[in-house]
Every structure is written in C-alpha cells, then in structure tokens.
Amino acid sequence: MSKVPADLKYTKTHEWLRTLPDGSIEIGITDHAQHALGDLVFVEVPEAGRAVKAGEPCAVVESVKAASDVYAPVTGEVTAGNPRLASEPEAVNTDAYGGGWLMRVRPTPGGATAALMSPAEYEKLQQEEGD
C-alpha cells in the first residue's frame, strides 16, 4: 500500500498539494503515481514566473517506459521548480512527498482550483485503481 500523508490534499490525477507558511502551494506526484511509473529518468519542471492554469499540464515526468503529464492543481504563478530533479529525477521515486517535490505555485486570488481530495478519499481512489 502506497503512503498517503494525512497533512496533504490530493487530485484525481495523482498530484499532492502542501500549503506552505507563506501561502504558496508545493506540488508533487504521489507515492502511488511514482510507483506506477517506475524508475524516473527525466523530469521537466516549469521555471519560476511561469503562469499555470488549474487542470492544464505544467510538468512532465518520464520513466524508462513512458512520459506522463503532471497537471496544475491550481491557477497561479510558479515561484520555483525543484532544481534538484534535473540531476536526480529518482528523488521523486525515493522521496515523493519531500525532496521529490516538483514545483511551488503562488495561487492567483480567486483563481480556479482542481477538485481536491482528502487523504481518505485519495486512499479510496488508489484502491479502486488497484494499488
């Protein structure tokens, strides 16, 4: 069973969200998602300053086998892409909720947000997908 930390929010497309003290949102992919993808070999994260829209692709994670889009869960401006992933994409496999974060976004006030799930709801989704 994949890990689903209790202090995060989730999307049905397997991103996680963490609200940071300054109000920005840290975003990554879940343990379930990294496990399904397998060994990651390339991660493309957006640069600071880029505007992202909720529900649209904003990053790409590639395993040996395939490339997958990561969808922005909120509308806003990217404040940072995780620079470590350029040389260590495997950090997403080994530390999906920590050192493997993908980007930080400052949400646009009143901007759109994807439908978010609680940890319990996300665990249920995982089970349905056969984790």
Partner: peptide, 9 residues
C-alpha cells in the same frame, strides 16, 4: 511481466 522491482536494476 514488464518488471519485478526496478527496470533499471
């Protein structure tokens, strides 16, 4: 079987 533990391994 596409992989057992790690494809790279």
């Amino acid at each position: 079987p596409v992989q057992y533990s790690s494809q790279i391994g």
